[in-house]
Simulated assay, not measured.
Amino acid sequence: MKFIDEYRDAEAVKRYARAIRKIVTRPWTLMEICGGQTHAIVRFGLDALLPNEVTLAHGPGCPVCVTPIELIDKAIALAQREKLILCSFGDMLRVPGSSLDLLSAKAQGGDVRVVYSPLDALKIAKENPDSEVVFFAVGFETTAPANAMAVYQAKNYKIDNFSILTSHALVPPAMQTLLSAEGNRVQGFLAAGHVCAIMGEEEYHPIAEKYKVPIVITGFEPLDILEGVYLCVKQLEQGRHVVENQYIRSVPKQGNPHAQKVVREVFEVVTRKWRGIGPISQSGLGLKEEYQAFDADKRYSLQSIEAEESPDCLSGDILRGAIKPHQCPAFGKSCTPEHPLGAPMVSTEGACSAYYIHRRHTAPTPSICNP
């Protein structure tokens, strides 16, 4: 398929694997930020192509995975209300709350609907004026513009039966939290290309300078990822720490100013709790005061709902890159896609899901080529 096959070319991937082997002289640990990158690494066995000196740690780059468990419980509580329609992307339905997930709430009679855009939820609100409609707004910077536009239109078109349950997280503060943590071993980052397509690269320059780590904005195909690893290792070997853009075909330096404008109009930066990690200052988006009427958390007085994660789930260690999914004692045993303990096992971008699908019974081996 044009513009995909080119980035899965086995010979080109081999060349980058050989190039990395030629320049590496000591151990380095890199972290890919996005769960989509994690799935590509595991699916194609890209880590098995790398020399032993290069370790890839999987980061917290899955918005579904980092959504705190109490927000799942809040969404379930909304779904159980009469005359309320809860709209969500499909990947949230299997994420476990304290005792249920949204799919179970739907099976018990809740009006839970899968949509492909928050504007679909806004349309449902228009078509059902006698029902309240809540959109479960989960995501990083990538999905924030569409969610902001839905709230903006709801206010300006006076669609008063629409609101959003917000769980927006921002990537750069999480990177700083990981780098500041005791025992941090991450020495370079592969930044998420789709986040940077919205926000650009400006926010990453202070991080690279402060923590002396290279940051390479990277795409999601095998060739993208290995080129990103090569650029990152090259910087480390040369003692440099700057922001580079491997994903230039999709990421302009300034990002998308129009998307940024609508996000600034509707949202403000707030402290956000990350599942398995805890509260991170200035790492989330909340509705501004003039849009508070569309905040489902306040409209339905959900602030008192609290929850604790399963003590058997080590998703926090996995999301911080401290361990790999198969190193969790529950992996593939008490935690499976049919009976998950945590979000990374059922999210389409979750590291545990990737390992369960592609490595449950086998060691990592390259699937597209041999070095």
Rank of each mutant, 00 (worst) to 15 (best):
D297C: 05
R94M: 11
R81V: 00
R8E: 13
H39S: 07
I41L: 11
L302K: 01
L170Q: 08
R264N: 14
P279H: 02
V269Q: 13
R360K: 13
A197W: 03
F135K: 11
L178S: 06
R43D: 08
K2M: 10
R81E: 11
E308R: 12
C328E: 03
A322K: 13
V115W: 09
A17Q: 05
I318W: 08
G109K: 12
S353H: 15
T362C: 08
I23K: 02
H361L: 14
A343V: 14
I217W: 06
E32T: 11
R94C: 03
G139W: 01
S347A: 00
L46E: 10
R185D: 10
A363L: 09
F135E: 05
G350M: 13
S304R: 02
Y247R: 05
P364V: 00
N147D: 15
M31Y: 03
E221C: 09
G193V: 12
G36F: 00
H339V: 09
P173C: 03
P51K: 14
S334R: 07
S310Y: 15
G188L: 09
A137W: 12
T271H: 05
E338Y: 05
L179S: 07
Q108G: 15
A146P: 00
L314T: 00
K288A: 09
P311M: 03
V134K: 06
I33L: 12
S180D: 11
I368K: 05
I159L: 12
A19M: 09
A146S: 15
R113C: 07
K273V: 04
V195C: 03
D312V: 02
